[in-house]
Simulated scan of single mutants.
Amino acid sequence: MARHKRSHPHGSPNRPRMWGKHAVAAALDNPERKVLRAWATQETAGLMQFPKDVPVTFADVADLGRLVPHDAPHQGVVIEVEPLEDIWLGDIISSAPEQALLLVLDQVTDPHNVGAILRSAAAFGAVGIVTQDRHSPPESGALAKAASGALERVPWARVVNLARALDEIGEAGFWRVGLAGEAEMDLKDALGPARVALVLGAEGPGLRPNTREHCDAVARLPISAAIESLNVSNAAAVALYAASIA
């Protein structure tokens, strides 16, 4: 007997579910995002601009809670979407202005961290983020919620080979600064050129050796000795601020 694949109750990589007012509103406002269906309370539905072709099911808070992972803060609205179309790295860097910030993530896989980094990237006007396709999280509700709408606004290029991508970034005139706690140089001393690519590694392993070799400089954030390191999303926010005012 043939087995029928059951749909995942909380969405799937091919049909992710998003929740929360900011994440959903941003998805609805994004002309590049295909929204397949929606569930909402009567009250929250009145605050959303659902397209006429999107089927909306009215549900109570408890029913919505069963559509998302346990304790996810859905805020009365859940949508199912198609993932965004792939964005090419070449398109991001070729359209970047003379003064630009770019984030490169080396095997940062936690969706909450990547979502928070997207949010900081939007806040400081970064032209995009770059990750390795095999070592980065897919679009998901948790990532979109942490990004608070930035998933729809910040270009995200997924590449096969991060070292080759860093070569391409360097050829486009970006000064590539890797962040590492053990570096001797402070970040402010490593900055200078108008186009900057900040390269951050995963918590624990940090930057891989091959990634370091493709950076123009390796620097650290001058944090207090009272704490060993910052969460990668916090480090990204601090580094973006420092680079934006340099």
Rank of each mutant, 00 (worst) to 15 (best):
G65R: 04
D91F: 03
A27E: 00
W39K: 08
P69Q: 08
L67V: 14
R220S: 11
L162T: 07
Q49G: 08
G149C: 04
R220W: 04
E98D: 11
R17N: 12
D106I: 04
F124R: 01
A126P: 00
P16W: 02
V35C: 05
P111S: 07
N30P: 02
A190L: 09
P222G: 08
A235K: 10
W88P: 04
V114C: 01
I169Q: 01
V77I: 08
N113F: 00
L151W: 12
A236E: 02
G173A: 12
N234R: 01
S95Y: 14
N231F: 01
E203G: 02
L221C: 09
E82V: 09
R33F: 10
A123Q: 03
R212N: 09
A194Y: 05
A172K: 02
E82D: 12
L67P: 02
K5Q: 15
H10D: 06
L143K: 07
A122N: 11
V238S: 01
K34G: 05
A122F: 09
Q49T: 15
W19C: 06
N113T: 03
Q42L: 12
V81Y: 02
R119E: 00
A45T: 11
L151E: 09
W39M: 13
H70M: 09
P55Y: 09
A202P: 00
T44S: 08
N30W: 01
N161E: 12
L105Y: 08
K34Y: 12
I223A: 06
P137M: 13
L179N: 02
T44C: 11
H214R: 14
V218M: 02
D186H: 10
R176M: 09
L162I: 14
T131R: 04
K5L: 15
P209T: 08
G11K: 05
L207V: 07
G141M: 01
G170T: 13
F124S: 07
S140M: 09
S140K: 03
P111V: 03
E203V: 14
V35G: 04
V114S: 03
V108N: 00
A40N: 05
A38C: 07
T57V: 13
P83A: 02
S7H: 07
V114T: 11
A142F: 11
E85S: 14
G141E: 08
S233F: 01
A62V: 15
D86W: 11
V35T: 11
F58P: 10
G20D: 05
G90S: 11
E43A: 14
P222V: 10
N234A: 15
P205M: 11
G178M: 14
R208G: 09
L230P: 00
I129E: 05
P73R: 10
A226C: 07
M48D: 03
P55Q: 07
F124Y: 14
V104L: 05
M18E: 15
Q107P: 07
I245T: 13
G141I: 06
Q132C: 12
A197V: 10
D60G: 03
R164M: 06
L179M: 11
P205A: 04
L101Q: 03
R134G: 07
A62H: 10
A197D: 15
L103F: 04
L179A: 02
R212V: 15
A235I: 09
T109A: 06
Q99R: 12
